[in-house]
Design a protein around this nucleic acid. Structure first.
Length: 261
DNA sequence: AGTACCACCTGACGGC
DNA sequence: TGCCGTCAGGTGGTAC
């Protein structure tokens, strides 16, 4: 699931639970989730240290250990973090476990193992080397509008392009386009300035609201697409049957009436 | 440069 | 019940 709002919730969760506790041990249950670092090195760099602060860029979460040392969490489609008292709970798909000196663990969960954990010296440098665009909550209007105006492909693809704007995935792209009353295949370079402004506004408010509602569709008030984003559902605004279309290999849900081309 | 497709993984679900 | 195809909220590589 994890897109920007979900990862922001993981960040808040980690801030509230996992900072400043000494790490007693690290257990790598599945080495496949480690990228560019061995289980041995990870353990050596973490044991006796603690997570001091976190930051987020797009769908990536960074936890600072010390100078020149950041742990990078990426969650893929099925990742999450959970903090709980050691052995108090049986959690499935735990791939890496951090044992704190206070008797609690932070675990990295990843059912499909499409996410990765890395260890990098500088968060900023890592973000730059991946050529990610500005975080969707930080991008300014000028840069956003330029990216949209220059794109010939479907607007949904542009919203999800991490090199242009970091943090929006399949689900929130659908919600943002629904709020903007834009068909997912609308070409960016065909959009009027008014429509681009409106889309920009909905990127910001859509993501901020999702964070307020803890990225849980169950908390979304009426008039939002997410809780209805499944086969055969009706538009929460006009009642029309929602439709789907493949955009860049992903399923886009939209209302054919509210989001007419 | 921009876009499409596949591979990476596991599991859930529907049809037969 | 069991098997099989399809699909799932992400990303990176390759091929046009």
């Amino acid at each position: 699931m994890p897109e920007l709002p979900d990862v922001e919730i993981f960040k808040k969760y980690m801030d509230a639970t996992s900072l400043h506790h000494k790490i007693n041990d690290v257990a790598v249950i599945e080495t496949k989730v480690l990228e560019g670092v061995s289980a041995r090195k990870l353990r050596a760099r973490l044991v006796d240290r603690s997570f001091e602060s976190t930051r987020r860029h797009g769908k990536y979460l960074f936890a600072r250990l010390e100078e020149r040392s950041w742990l990078v969490f990426h969650f893929g489609m099925t990742g999450a973090l959970k903090y709980y008292k050691t052995e108090s709970d049986h959690v499935k798909y735990v791939r890496v476990r951090f044992f704190f000196s206070n008797g609690y663990d932070l675990v990295y969960i990843s059912q499909r193992m499409l996410g990765r954990i890395r260890l990098v010296p500088f968060a900023e440098e890592f973000i730059g080397s991946n050529e990610w665009g500005p975080d969707a909550l930080a991008i300014d209007y000028g840069r956003f509008a330029e990216a949209v105006r220059k794109s010939r492909g479907p607007i949904k693809t542009t919203l999800m392009n991490q090199k242009l704007i970091a943090g929006i995935g399949n689900i929130y792209a659908d919600e943002i386009l629904f709020q903007s009353r834009l068909h997912p295949t609308t070409p960016g370079n065909k959009m009027k300035p008014q429509a681009i402004e409106n889309l920009f506004h909905n990127v910001k408010t859509g993501l901020k609201q999702a964070i307020q509602w803890r990225a849980d569709p169950g908390n979304f008030p009426k008039g939002h697409l997410l809780p209805h984003r499944n086969q055969g559902a009706d538009c929460p605004v006009c009642g029309q049957k929602l439709k789907t279309v493949k955009v860049a290999g992903r399923t886009a849900y939209f209302c054919p009436r509210c989001q007419a081309r």
